[in-house]
Simulated assay, not measured.
Amino acid sequence: MLKSLVTFFAILVIAHCSALTIVLKAEEKSCYYIFTEKPKTSIGYYFAVQSGGDFDIDYTIKGPDEKVIVHEEKQRQGDWVFHADQVGEYEFCFSNEMSKYVEKVVDFEITLESDFKAELPNGGSNPVEVDGIVNSVESIETKLNAIGKKLQYYKTRNNRNQFTVKSTESRILYFSIYEMVLIVGMAILQVTVVQIFFSGSRKTLV
């Protein structure tokens, strides 16, 4: 019984530790796949653009029959669940083809929300105790999932804020350089005008 519960909890942990980070270069498209063995399986997916351009990306989800399930353009992040009615391979594609020069960094996670209760043995154990343990594990799973989503959200906000700060610093630096060049240029122009003025005055006196 204990071994089965440990296996059950390990499966849940593994299912929620599949987050990946990818770098999409300009005009690049990248696809990933997940296979479902049972019909009407719930597939959850999360993604967030961490850096690059306006923090947006295009993505498409296709079923085993190549039909488009979801297609969104210029999305910054998303956290949704949909029902996979068919058994087979589902395709998740992220596209940065709209960008000509800027690469994007994307975090994403794809999970199968299957019902693992069927894997727990009921014979020889108190059903009330089993249900209590299962409910505790499910509660822990829900809280871990919520914490993970909050951490991902804060990570995304932190990355975007850092990008904004760096962008602002770069603009201030370039503006300061432009201002210095403009001041030096105006000083040189004024000196040149004064020299021309006095040079013309001396010729008139002569």
Results as ranks from 00 to 15, higher is better:
Pro121Asp: 08
Ile57Asp: 04
Pro64Phe: 05
Arg157Phe: 11
Gly44Lys: 10
Gly132Lys: 01
Lys117Pro: 01
Val70Trp: 12
Ile61Gly: 00
Asn96Trp: 01
Gly123Ala: 12
Glu103His: 13
Ile133Gly: 01
Gly52Pro: 08
Thr164Pro: 02
Phe94Met: 03
Lys62Trp: 06
Phe92Ala: 08
Asp79Met: 07
Tyr101Glu: 05
Asn145Ala: 13
Glu73Asp: 12
Ser95Asp: 15
Gln50Tyr: 08
Tyr154Gln: 13
Ser139Ile: 05
Thr164Asn: 10
His71Pro: 01
Gln86Phe: 12
Gln75Cys: 15
Lys117Ala: 13
Asp131Asn: 14
Lys166Ile: 04
Gln75Glu: 08
Asp131Tyr: 05
Thr142Trp: 03
Glu109Leu: 15
Tyr101Trp: 07
Ala118Leu: 11
Gly123Cys: 09
Ser125Gln: 10
Asn96Gly: 10
Lys74Met: 13
Leu120Asn: 05
Asp79Ile: 09
Thr41Leu: 13
Thr164Phe: 12
Gly132Tyr: 02
Asn158Gln: 11
Val102Ser: 04
Asp107Ile: 07
Gln86Glu: 13
Phe55Leu: 11
Gly123Phe: 09
Lys149Asp: 06
Ile140Gly: 10
Glu37His: 06
Thr41Arg: 01
Ile43Asn: 00
Val81Met: 14
His83Gly: 02
Asn122His: 06
Gly52Arg: 09
Glu66Trp: 10
Val87Ile: 15
Asn96His: 13
Tyr59Met: 07
Glu73Asn: 09
Glu129Val: 10
Lys143Met: 14
Trp80Val: 05
Arg160Ala: 07
Asn159Gln: 09
Asn135Leu: 08
Gly44Asn: 13
Lys143Gln: 12
Gln162Met: 12
Gly148Cys: 01
Ala118Val: 14
Asn145Cys: 08
Glu91Trp: 04
Asn158Val: 00
Arg160Cys: 02
Phe163Lys: 04
Gly123Thr: 06
Lys166Phe: 14
Tyr154Arg: 12
Val70His: 11
Val134Arg: 01
Ile57Phe: 05
Leu112Trp: 03
Gly123Lys: 07
Val49Leu: 02
Leu144Asp: 01
Gly148Phe: 02
Glu66Tyr: 12
Thr156Leu: 01
Ser51Trp: 09
Lys74Val: 00
Val137Trp: 03
Trp80Met: 07
Lys117Phe: 04
Leu144Ile: 13
Lys150His: 02
Tyr101Gly: 00
Asp58His: 12
Trp80Gly: 01
His83Asn: 07
Glu113Cys: 04
Asn122Gln: 09
Gln50Leu: 15
